[in-house]
């Protein structure tokens, strides 16, 4: 589960970003991408007005990958107008089922 340092001056905006990303739902599993554990990191550059989401997909051949990435960009641009969004897909570490949050596991069971 993604965590931030509360002493970070960007703590609240990063937490807000994570909360808004809960609106992005995996189309097959019907679970939001935060509870899926797909989001690894959130970087905010207030001076350049840029938000960078470092995330992965459940598999590199995920047929809904492009849709999820597009949804993340749309979601951030909707809730944080004035910021440019960049989504960085990473494959290390590879997503596993251990990435699911307790809530995610509960929704699947």
């Amino acid at each position: 589960m993604i965590e931030f340092d509360i002493t970070d001056k960007l703590f609240f905006i990063k937490t807000d970003i994570v909360e808004s990303l809960r609106l992005v739902i995996d189309p097959e599993l019907h679970i939001n991408i935060i509870d899926m554990g797909l989001v690894y990191n959130v970087n905010v550059d207030e001076t350049e007005g840029k938000i960078c989401i470092e995330m992965t997909l459940s598999s590199s051949y995920c047929p809904m990958g492009e849709s999820i990435v597009s949804a993340v960009k749309n979601c951030i641009e909707l809730h944080f107008p004035g910021f440019i969004t960049e989504v960085l897909l990473v494959w290390d570490p590879v997503w596993t089922y251990d990435n699911l949050s307790e809530e995610g596991k509960r929704l699947l069971s």
Binding site: P27, E28, M64, S67, N74, E77
Partner: peptide, 22 residues
């Protein structure tokens, strides 16, 4: 449903609440 969903909703998802493929 996924094929049709991508055509209708890929550009809208995240901006609006959309139906899921199912």
């Amino acid at each position: 449903p996924f094929i049709v969903w991508v055509k209708h909703y890929e550009h809208l998802t995240g901006k609006f609440k959309t139906p899921m493929p199912a």
